[in-house]
Design a protein around this nucleic acid. Structure first.
Lengths: 345, 345
DNA sequence: ACGCGTTGTTGAATCCATTCATTAAACCCA
DNA sequence: TGGGTTTAATGAATGGATTCAACAACGCGT
């Protein structure tokens, strides 16, 4: 009963009593085939359970696939998943289809996956790069394959890139807190090897300086890479002399860690600083957490457009797209500083 | 400077002054090539920026790819993303690589993607099926390609399947609540077209009956498909005569909706029922929500193992794997019923 | 009956790299 | 030094389907 070997087009042609080429014509809806012949071929194809071999098709059609490859740092991460979703939707109406592979934050694996997809001749490649050097993504590797980087630019590669407006987002947060009277704002940031962490850190110091606060560095704690370490950083930061009256947490893992720390603190009857987080997250509304939000799917959307554009015209110069942020006010960012702390430090 | 057409192996062979076959030997590390020749070929390959065409390789090697395809209902959904992560890790050490495509909950698209992956001759296919009929996934379509279904079985297909222990999870929750004295437990469930929703619903009624509570159906509200509708269902359910003293919410979206409803209710100074949710979620610990948790990555892990096993031996009978659940106690599920409500109804 | 465009169908070449069968040279030892 | 084995390298066939060029057959106007 079961069909054990996939029938080839040749088998279909033979069964229908026509040439290979004629069978090919029919199954590609090409003209110049008599109706009776068409039906014979179609019947044979169905009877044999024929499915065309996409690899052979792509090979014969000039060697490129209708596939856009996406190398994500972590499939299970909501942020990258949203980017993938945005790409998927943007490609929906095109002839292209998205395939995703995950590097699990491992630079070696990222490179391996990238090369595998390139070897498979994807029409375009979108990468959410890890922090390693990406010099290998040079022209001699991609060799004309459109390349788009998302979230972070890759060191040593001049390619299309889509990033969040990190500086703008941080500035919105800082402006908001300062407008409420905060002068001592603490920053809890990610590992500075991560490009976005550095960007946000720098933007923070600049924004504070623009408000006349020069020693902002004093209240910066970098290097939190998960909720647990973030929680410790926050606890430490709140125990320094002249502690911050407001906190800026630079991604959602850190925000979650901070929430745990503040939860403990509140349980201990101590005062709790204002909090603004970078990245929105589920239940942030329920918890009343003010955040700098952005549309992750939009990053994917833009990336897909850039990739598509470049498949159409590979000679385009490298382009750079920025996805905007917005401040979502929910309460945690609107706690004013204690009155005796409001003045200049 | 830029290389505009990828060099073929033939080009490398020519540049090195050897035959095609010899070049192939070298680049596949096959024996019987003089060291000097090897070096010539390698040099030529590097100089030309040669990358072997994976499609041609797979075609020549018998037509199968080292790829396992995963058709997910929604890339951006945390649950499916975790499954993908689990598969990825399970395949890490094998010769296979995972590629993912998203159907965005659209049955037509799911079928299209499935066929596209099949046409690409993936070594195995894992599908998180939508609720549509999957009769099309019969032998004549997959034609020997190993097929694994995750989270839900597919109607009309006898294939390897990995599911959560839905009945066991529901029973844990019910037992827990009943042990605390609850007799009137409300169920807020997903659209009954979803298999898991039906499973959990049935298990609930059975578990309640086993505790001598026969009219459990009275407090069941099905059909919530997102947080907003779930919120309304909960609000309605708590306003019936003899309302539930405890709530069971059947997935994380519904739990979130319920939390919103309970939040409002508490803000209005009204009493709040106990709550146990199916599915764990981020911040559930912070919010003190008791849940029935399970390891989504484990589903992917099992699925990958089944797929791998079947590529090794396609004649295996269809197997069924169940991933266990555990109750995570965090407070919301341990609110006892009001004293005047505790007795038999 | 001739010329000409259209329709139906075909065989061969192509895509890229692999496997199979073979030839040619080098090497070992009696 | 001749027979046998190992090593080096090659040409042709294979995989599945496409594109290109060419060839009959057909209709039609004149």
């Amino acid at each position: 009963m079961a069909i054990h070997r996939r029938p080839t087009l040749a088998a279909v042609a033979e069964a229908a009593g026509v040439s290979l080429k004629t069978a090919s014509r029919v199954l590609n809806d090409e003209p110049h085939v008599a109706l009776a012949t068409q039906e014979k071929v179609r019947a044979a194809a169905v009877a044999l359970g024929f499915r065309r071999n996409a690899m052979a098709v792509d090979l014969a059609r000039g060697g490129t696939t209708p596939l856009v490859g996406f190398v994500t740092a972590d499939v299970a991460n909501r942020f990258y998943a949203s980017i993938a979703g945005g790409m998927e939707r943007a490609l929906r109406d095109s002839a292209y289809q998205l395939i995703t592979a995950s590097s699990d934050e491992d630079p070696a694996r990222e490179r391996q996956l990238t090369e595998a997809l390139l070897d498979r001749r994807v029409a375009a490649l979108v990468i959410a790069p890890t922090d390693a050097d990406h010099g290998y993504l040079g022209r001699e590797l991609t060799s004309g394959t459109p390349l788009v980087l998302v979230d972070r630019p890759a060191a040593g590669v001049d390619a299309d890139t889509v990033v969040i407006d990190n500086a703008g987002g941080v500035r919105q947060a800082v402006d908001h807190l300062v407008a409420d009277g905060h002068r001592r704002v603490g920053l809890v940031g990610d590992d500075p090897r991560v490009w976005t962490a550095r960007e946000r850190h720098l933007a923070f110091v600049r924004a504070m300086a623009d408000h006349g606060i020069a020693d902002a560095e004093r209240l910066v704690r970098d290097g939190a890479h998960d909720a647990a370490t973030a929680q410790r950083s926050v606890t430490d930061l709140l125990d320094v002399p002249e502690p911050p009256t407001a906190l800026l947490t630079m991604n959602n893992r850190i925000t979650v860690g901070a929430l745990h720390a503040l939860h403990e603190r509140r349980a201990a009857g101590r005062t709790v600083p204002a909090l603004v987080g970078f990245d929105d997250f589920e239940l942030a509304d329920l918890l009343g957490v003010t955040v700098v939000a952005y549309d992750a799917a939009e990053i994917g959307h833009q990336a897909a457009l850039l990739a598509l554009g470049r498949t159409a015209d590979p000679t385009l110069p490298a382009r750079w797209r920025t996805v905007g942020t917005r401040l979502v006010v929910r309460g945690s960012g609107e706690r004013p500083p204690p009155v005796d702390d409001g003045g200049p430090a």
